[in-house]
Design a binder for these strands. Sequence first.
DNA 1: CCGATATCCTTGAGTTTATCAAGTATCGAG
DNA 2: CTCGATACTTGATAAACTCAAGGATATCGG
Lengths: 150, 150
Amino acid sequence: MRHPRSAAATKSAADAWGAVTELLMSGIGQARFHSACQSIDVTPPALKALLSMVPGVANPMRTIAVNLRCDASWVTSLVDTLEARGLVERRVSPTDRRVKTIALTEAGTVAKAAALATLNVPPPEMDALTREEQTQLRDLLRKLQHAHNI
Amino acid sequence: MRHPRSAAATKSAADAWGAVTELLMSGIGQARFHSACQSIDVTPPALKALLSMVPGVANPMRTIAVNLRCDASWVTSLVDTLEARGLVERRVSPTDRRVKTIALTEAGTVAKAAALATLNVPPPEMDALTREEQTQLRDLLRKLQHAHNI
DNA sequence: CCGATATCCTTGAGTTTATCAAGTATCGAG
DNA sequence: CTCGATACTTGATAAACTCAAGGATATCGG
């Protein structure tokens, strides 16, 4: 293991991490998410799907199903509606004709960005951090995210 | 104000917060939430409801509906099932006989804590950070947590 | 090559999760 | 007291999912 965890470090990290998840899950998150949906006029499940996609990256539907923890058939209907709205595009994989990869269209990319603009409005708690700290926090989380996407 | 927000400061806060939401909403969050539900054997909506409650605090059902952004009647059925499981208790408000306040029972408090224990496990991606960075992240999140609890 | 087997997506049926409309009980203002 | 508003509940719908089955394509062992 590259960075061994002491028991104490693990526990306090869990506490801190938990505090943020709780903040996001039980309070602010729900509200923000709904208004983000309204702002780009899509349903909540559709936004979840959009958020799981990255501009320029075309993933198989199966991957989306795994990420969203839902049945593959549900992804089919989600993509159906998103495609009807022109936010997303089905492509047949060149290497495997069974799989269809899904890519954000131009409009989809814009829509996702708009939704994020709503979601990213920082909560007032953020004022407790100085600017340097905010930047630090962003960079650390980015690193986590990067590690996740590998 | 301790840390006045310039346009730049607002941006850095948005970036930082955006990193949090993106990480939790589109990746790790979904998965964690589902396993937390399994760990205490409740449905996802039931867990959302549990998370919105605080031990020792009895809120009107209406408040829960507002927090969850859902119809009041849906809260009725959620509370029905939670009450049937003994996790929650209906009380008639002493000041207004129309309102029923909902309080976590002993079992409910335990269940919520157990669910949080699952949610609070720091993601394995944490290993991508050095020990120093982990500590830094923890402290930043702590500060955020503290600001929230004031 | 060929069949057996597995995976990917889709379709249709069924269940769970939620919203809407209406009803009862209570409150508060006039 | 009467009226209008609010809190919760109930029952009927709609939305958001899961499950079972099927057609198309890939992969593997013979």
